[in-house]
Amino acid sequence: MALAASDDTTPRLLLSGSDAAEAEKEAKKEPEPPRITSVFGTQPLKEFKLPFEDQYPSGPFERLDKKLFLFISKCGDVFFVRQNESMELVKPGKALAKFIPGDETSSDESSSKQLVYCKELSGVKDSLLVGKTLYVAYTTWDEANNGVRLAVSEFAVDVENSEVSFDREIYISRPAIKEPILGHQVGGKLALGENERTLYLSLGDFSKPDRVQDKTTSLGKVVRIDLQRLNAEVYASGFRSPSGGLFYDRESNELWLTDHGPRGGDEINLIKRGKNYGWPSVSYGTIYERDGIGGYYGNKFNSHEGYEKPQMTFLPSIGIGPLVKYPSTGRNDFWDNDLFVAGMGNTTLYRIRKEGTSLVYAEPVLNGYRIRAIQIDQNGTFYLKTDHNQLLISEQE
């Protein structure tokens, strides 16, 4: 290896034959596969490209069996996808729709109505599969009141024929909110509760913070829905944009929620019945210029005085996303019962050390992916869906 002068008198590095061959070999080397990397263990990931394109913010997914998945796009198109060497589309996507009675003889699209209001950042927010029943939370347009609502509907899943059919609407927010709204601040996360009859739903402020502490609205609330009686109660209040994650832990009977704060102040909250979490009166974050100043937080920056406090706050904000618990699998005792939460804004996955109800620290374990949805099965296998049409699946070592 030697240095030589170029025409501009800048020294250049000349490589010997063996060095040049080694450099060429390095350039051709396959990139290292992604890996969840913790101080207390690792899991390699296999990255799959999804066979359809979704928009931002992208929609949720469900696992129908080990190799079969159901994806719902932001605008409500349903795709059945099978995992082989690559992800393969079982059949073309079909929009979530509601059949309109009285048109039984009609064979055209006039006999059904598309359910999802998909404008800018509005659209499908979450799904939850319970047996062969699929619950979907989505924004919908109220024509009578000329505004946007958050709805939850129940669908039947026919795996054999790759079909999803509308059964009934089980919840709709109040009141209808007139545009303009920020569609990513409507909430819409779902969690099955203490039994198969109980569903929890998070609702955001629709970018109308002055309506959150109004008890006559659904805005900024967590509601508990009785799936048998189809009634709902406000379970907790005071949230800004709980559109990241909602998780009910049946082992500990704890309900966990992530909430996007303003500038700074992203939160992980342990949700307790009847408690008020303070938005917009208090926040550990500070204001965005677009929000204006006048009394917006009650002028209580960097404070949760008088309200229920989050279990963990991220400052600066990480663009907090989905949250799940790692089960007791016998594979990694160090991770058992810890939480995993995605930072969508900083494209980082964190392991949150949980001791009792305390969250002790956040360990970054994966970088470079904007993770929109997470599932972990009982064997400890991770399924991570990104906003860039990818599905990452962990492989056991």
Rank of each mutant, 00 (worst) to 15 (best):
R353F: 09
P316K: 11
V324P: 05
E179H: 10
P316T: 13
S328L: 08
D65L: 03
I376S: 07
F79G: 03
A373D: 15
V136E: 07
E395G: 00
G321V: 05
L255P: 05
I36H: 04
D54Q: 06
A373F: 13
A21V: 10
G93F: 00
L13D: 00
L366F: 14
R63S: 09
K46C: 01
D205K: 04
M1Y: 05
Y56S: 09
R229A: 14
S162M: 00
K272W: 07
V130K: 10
P11E: 05
I225V: 13
C75K: 12
D266N: 02
T139D: 14
T37Y: 07
S127Y: 03
S111E: 10
P31C: 03
P180T: 13
V341E: 08
V152G: 03
S107A: 12
E254F: 08
G187V: 09
E251L: 12
E26T: 05
L270V: 07
Q396D: 13
Y383W: 11
L257M: 13
G292F: 08
L15Q: 08
P60L: 06
S38K: 07
E254P: 02
L246K: 01
K385D: 02
L192R: 14
Y369I: 05
L203D: 03
V282K: 09
D205F: 01
I320A: 07
G244S: 07
L96I: 05
G294M: 06
D103L: 14
Y284F: 14
T10G: 01
F99L: 06
L13M: 12
I287T: 13
Y138K: 04
